[in-house]
Amino acid sequence: MTHLASICLLLLKIHTMKSCAGVSLKTQELYALVFVTRYLDLFSNFVSMYNTIMKIIFLSSTFGIIWYMRGHKLVRQSYDKEQDTFRHYFLVIPCMVLALVIHSKFTLLEVLWTFSIYLEAVAILPQLVLLQRTRNIDNLTGNYIFCLGAYRALYLLNWIYRYFMEKNYHAQWITWMAGMIQTAIYADFFYYYFKSWKKNERLKLPA
């Protein structure tokens, strides 16, 4: 739900302000790759209606955001292309190699799924780099990144709950480790987010 909220916040910003200033297209494209490689089981592995609908929402909204940033006349002009310089392959290639080495089962679907877990953990990095370079971070962008970080932190709590409360729940070291790293990457951002919130000041990251 927090993940869904983050997407709503981002779409709200882009749609109402007709601006994607401070939003990293690189992160959005990495997320698109994360969802495509993770949800390859969309039609073969039915978990629940909720699960299927959320998968479709995550996939379509991410491609919608990318379309807005690349294709929409006004939104495209507000994109900080010169600042958003992170290279995709710096993250994609190491994650691919890691997925080929560390996975639970050597099948195409399983390796791609593992790749998506690793890539998700670091997909925020281009956004954090852009954020540090952006002088005026608007509230919606700040809250968007907060929700994006919060959903994995909440997963950590959920994993602990499931581990102790569910009978048939097995240890998932790959997901847990990646989730911990993903949350840790946001630690610095969370710190400044709460600091600015407490002081009622505009969010600003130190250079």
Binding site: D41, S104, K105, T107, E110, I174, T175
Partner: peptide, 10 residues
């Protein structure tokens, strides 16, 4: 053989 991870999360 290693089992695949259960995939009921998003």
């Amino acid at each position: 053989e290693d089992a695949a991870v259960q995939k009921d999360e998003l």
